[in-house]
């Protein structure tokens, strides 16, 4: 017994060390975001010293010169807006096509499943073209694009759940004189809460981190997301401002970490649920 306990202690120590090493890359970036930009490439693995410490200068540069704060705002707007629209529209759609049998329902379902396996490169050129024609190149318009391109996974996951809801509950509501809309919002929606959380988390992580879709669809002269700003900082010709990049990386990671730590139980469950989509 004592031997077993000692082994588990050793295991805990080893894994504590491993865990620290595992998240070290994030801390390296954090240290560097407080260093003078000239020193970042020269000595990336040292803590800021009195000579190299610049306080919040890099953050201010990223905000002033590259509009990082606006980008964070637009990314939040696009993510929250798209996720809410996706959750509402696709859950209603999934309920309808599961409850009303027929060729149309079946066709929509199969197309949604099909769209999950299509890589983005297949549609990126034409999608950019179509959304430009339809003037969807604004943060408001891109919500529609996200609804369209994200519908597959969401409809699929909602359908899976609706199938497990016993029909009698809804029938009772309908017989009592509820309209289908009232039935959906008063009866079905509350039952589906766990699926809303799972789908919401999956779509949030996808849209917050997405780069190529907004890069191609948005009018990037006016609106940028955080990923786009970072890519611009690095890709623009001339000198690369390493300090501003470090600050931007931290600004992109912090919301994710906070979000993760505050609802990690749901996130791990939701992500594992999404894995079954294969």
């Amino acid at each position: 017994m004592a031997k077993k306990r000692r082994i588990s202690m050793v295991g805990s120590v080893i894994f504590t060390v491993l865990s620290v090493i595992y998240i070290l890359p994030i801390f390296v970036v954090l240290f560097n975001s407080f260093k003078k930009k000239a020193y970042i490439n020269l000595e990336p693995f040292t803590l800021p010293t009195e000579k190299t410490f610049v306080g919040l200068d890099n953050y201010l540069a990223a905000i002033k010169q590259y509009g990082l704060l606006d980008a964070v705002g637009w990314t939040v707007f696009i993510t929250v807006g798209s996720v809410l629209v996706i959750l509402l529209c696709t859950s209603m759609c999934a309920w309808y096509i599961t409850r009303v049998q027929g060729a149309v329902s079946k066709g929509i379902y199969l197309l949604c499943v099909f769209s999950m396996v299509v890589p983005f490169q297949m549609v990126m050129f034409t999608l950019a073209l179509v959304s430009d024609r339809l003037r969807l190149n604004t943060p408001w318009g891109i919500i529609i694009v996200y609804l369209g391109f994200g519908a597959g996974l969401a409809v699929f996951m909602f359908c899976g759940f609706v199938k497990s809801i016993p029909l009698e509950i809804e029938e009772a509501a309908l017989i009592d004189g509820c309209s289908p809309l009232r039935t959906f919002f008063r009866v079905v929606l509350p039952i589906m809460q766990p699926t809303y959380i799972s789908v919401g988390i999956l779509e949030t992580m996808w849209i917050w981190n997405d780069f190529l879709l907004p890069y191609l669809v948005l009018d990037t002269n006016k609106y940028k997301t955080v990923s786009i700003v970072i890519q611009y900082m690095k890709g623009s010709f001339g000198r690369v401002d390493m300090g501003a990049i470090m600050a931007a990386l931290i600004m992109a990671v912090i919301p994710v970490v906070v979000f993760y730590l505050s609802c990690q139980k749901y996130i791990i469950k939701g992500v594992a649920a999404g894995a079954v989509k294969g």
Partner: peptide, 17 residues
Amino acid sequence: FVLPTLLAFTIGFIIPF
């Protein structure tokens, strides 16, 4: 129930594909 998603899906996936 279906039309909003179907329209967006048509714009965002079916037509581009």
